[in-house]
Every structure is written in C-alpha cells, then in structure tokens.
Computed example of a mutant assay.
Amino acid sequence: MSWKTAYRSFYYEHAEPPEDIELQPQSTALLVIDIQNTYLEVPENPIEAARWQPFFERMNKTVIPNTARLIEDARARGVEVIFARIACLKDDGRDRSLSQKKPGFNYLLLPKDRPDSQVVDPLQPQADEITVLKTTDSALTGTNLRLILHNMGIKDVVVAGIFTDQCVSSTVRSLADESFGVVVVEDACAAATDQLHHHELEIINMIYCHVVKSDELAEFWRP
C-alpha cells in the first residue's frame, strides 16, 4: 500500500490522494526524537520485561537500523540532522514540565549528562549536528528549535523517533502549527505497542503530516 492511501482515519477515509512530496535538501531537516539509552533498558521485573519485549525487538531490529540509514542518507545529501532528547538541566529535575513529573510511566528524571539520557550509540550526533534538550513532550515547545529551524531556512522536517503517540505526535503537531511541512517515517518510529503506534499514525496522517516508509522517502528528494 502506498503512503498516499495508507493510515487513513475517518476524516480522510474517502479523500483524494495527496500531491507528491518534494523535499529540497538545503531546506529540509531530519529530526531524531528521544532514541535514548534509557528506553532500551530491560525492566528487572520479568512480567514488565515480557510486556515490553515486542517494543525492544522493534527498536533493535527496525527503528534503530532504519534511523541509522536515514541519518547516513541525510548526511550524504547535505540534509541537516538534528537530535532531540529528554534531559533536564537540574539534577533534581526541578526544571521539568508537569507532564514529566507526574507519577507513572511518563515520570522522567534524566539529568543531561547522565549516560541513560544520551542518544544510543548507533545514532550518535557528529561534528556540529545540533542536539536540543527538552523537558517537554514537544521538541518545539520547550526548546529554541523553532528559531533554529527558521534561522537555517528549514521548511520541511522528516521525523523519526519515539514514542509515536507521545513525543513524536506532540512534536509533529507543533511543527504543523508552525507551518512546517512534516514527513513521519513510520518504520523509524515506535510506540509501546504496535496498536498504539498505528492508531496514532492514523490520527496525525494527512492533517499534521504525511506518514511514509523509509524506502519511500528516496523518491521525494529533488536536486
């Protein structure tokens, strides 16, 4: 199934196929969201470890390898590669947003210099590639990324990362509200479950972004 007909929600079930996507390397950025060491740590509780096993498999076998290929291709094309990671500036996390202080899964205390807050080794930033630190779900809301993108003349953003239904979705919506063109690479993203992943892609597709697969992205680039 083509990206033009996949991931249709009720709103767009019978809509005409979208126009072809055209990406100019000099005005496009690849944004890699929250693929950090902490999310690959297997829980000590065996029940929780079993519950999360499908996520770990998707990350290690699909998301990280595909994102690595996206990064390599972007660098070769001269496309700006930008990383966003959850990382508080204070060791006690006082600077975190309320959503990251609430009890439960979304409680995140990741001081910026701690190993578990770093980008995973296969995707490490190089040279002068930008990394923004965020204490919010959206990479735009809690950072100066909006200004950075505008200053560099970026008009389109290709998005990879986790979690599809949380930080990816929040960032995509913020980007769309700021009138950036957004492309989400489906097989370079993951949620805790495939059901959550696919459901969120249906929600954001066509309204806030276009959802594509990594092997479809190559056809969008223009000289």
Rank of each mutant, 00 (worst) to 15 (best):
Y208T: 01
P122G: 02
N66W: 08
V212K: 03
S174I: 06
R77Y: 08
V132K: 04
L140V: 07
R222F: 01
A50T: 14
V182F: 08
L217M: 01
E57P: 00
W52V: 09
I21D: 06
Y11K: 13
H210L: 11
V211Q: 01
C209V: 02
E72A: 15
R173K: 12
H150S: 11
Q195A: 14
W221R: 07
P65M: 05
N45R: 03
L30I: 01
S214G: 04
Y107C: 10
I47A: 13
A160E: 02
L98Q: 09
A188V: 07
C167W: 02
L175C: 05
F105V: 11
L201S: 06
A15C: 10
M152V: 12
D116T: 09
H150A: 14
A50S: 13
D34H: 01
V182P: 05
P54R: 02
R173I: 12
S97A: 12
Q124L: 13
I207F: 08
G93R: 08
I35F: 03
R94T: 13
K213I: 03
E186I: 02
V81I: 00
E44I: 09
P122H: 03
E178Y: 10
A68F: 03
K90H: 11
N205V: 00
L149R: 01
T135F: 08
Q124D: 05
P125L: 09
I82E: 12
P65F: 01
D128H: 10
E80K: 15
P25W: 07
D73N: 13
I204F: 00
K101H: 04
L70S: 06
E200K: 05
N106L: 13
R94L: 06
A74W: 08
E219F: 04
I82Y: 07
S97T: 01
L196W: 04
D113C: 03
G153V: 06
Q195I: 10
E129N: 04
Q124M: 12
E129T: 01
S99V: 11
E216L: 04
F56E: 02
S117L: 05
N151I: 08
F10V: 11
D20Q: 15
A50G: 09
I204N: 00
L110G: 08
L89T: 14
K134E: 08
V157W: 07
H199K: 10
R94P: 00
I33D: 07
P65K: 04
L89C: 03
S169P: 01
P111A: 13
I130K: 15
A50E: 14
P18G: 09
P25Y: 06
E19W: 05
K155T: 14
Q126Y: 03
V42A: 00
I86Y: 12
R69N: 07
Y7F: 15
R114S: 09
A6Y: 04
L30E: 02
Y208L: 00
A84N: 10
K112A: 13
H197G: 08
P122M: 05
I204H: 00
H197Q: 12
Q100W: 09
E44M: 12
K213H: 14
V132M: 02
F56D: 03
F163M: 15
W221I: 03
D121G: 07
V182T: 11
A127S: 13
G93E: 13
